[in-house]
């Protein structure tokens, strides 16, 4: 098995996060060899600066955490994050369009962002806590259709985060066509391993250090 730390997107997304906290996050990511640091877009440049000359990637959230901003604004936020040095983008799906079965709108929202980063990883957060099983299946299909590289369970700011059941459903539906990131509420070694065993490719967590050292 690949080393556990390389599954981790070391994450700090609370709106009150300070510059000092973000710099600490970057230092921790380098020390523990996490895959990336994941932050809001106003910290992308700072994160890039503090991870340069390391293998740690920069991951930026877009349209976060509601996914309800206009498609054009999501695209622009993505372009700006790319300029600031991000390697990966985690965007939130438009849940209102999905609930209203406006599937063309959902695909357009995702594809418009993906078109701007053909060579970089795009993860689509489908916020499973708000979705029925049918909606999860549909969200996976639409994300794949729109060119997403990953589907991701949760923002961490909804009523709950990832569940094993939801991830299994995403895994069955996507059937190898896209990777999966589980996030929200994964806080210890045992839980992280459970997700990896069922085929998750990445874990988003603020508890990365506990996961890799705590057991």
């Amino acid at each position: 098995m690949t080393h556990l730390s390389s599954y981790i997107d070391h994450t700090l997304l609370k709106p009150t996060a300070t510059e000092a906290e973000i710099i600490k996050l970057c230092e921790e990511a380098k020390k523990f060899r996490f895959f990336s640091v994941c932050t809001n877009s106003y910290f992308t440049a700072l994160t890039k600066e503090h991870t340069k000359n390391s293998n740690v990637k920069v991951c930026t959230v877009v349209g976060f955490p509601l996914g309800a901003m206009s498609t054009e604004a999501k695209v622009y936020e993505t372009i700006q994050a790319m300029k600031d040095g991000t390697d990966e983008i985690d965007m939130v799906i438009n849940l209102g369009l999905l609930k209203a079965k406006d599937y063309t709108g959902v695909v357009r929202d995702i594809a418009s962002v993906k078109n701007r980063l053909p060579n970089n990883v795009l993860k689509v957060i489908i916020e499973t806590c708000y979705l029925t099983d049918d909606e999860i299946i549909k969200a996976c299909e639409l994300s794949i259709q729109a060119g997403a590289d990953f589907i991701k369970t949760s923002t961490g700011f909804g009523p709950h985060g990832a569940t094993l059941e939801h991830v299994k459903l995403m895994k069955t539906t996507s059937n190898g066509r896209v990777k999966i990131k589980a996030s929200g509420g994964i806080k210890d070694f045992k839980t992280a391993i459970e997700y990896i065993k069922i085929g998750v490719d990445r874990i988003g967590t603020s508890a990365g250090i506990t996961i890799v050292t705590g057991k």
Partner: peptide
């Protein structure tokens, strides 16, 4: 609303979202 609800998106992205909203 713009940069909602965290206010944590880049300034340039807030500016763009605001201008687009006015256009809409």
């Amino acid at each position: 609303v713009v940069g909602f609800p965290f206010g944590a998106m880049s300034t340039d992205a807030k500016v763009f979202e605001a201008k687009k909203a006015i256009e809409d």
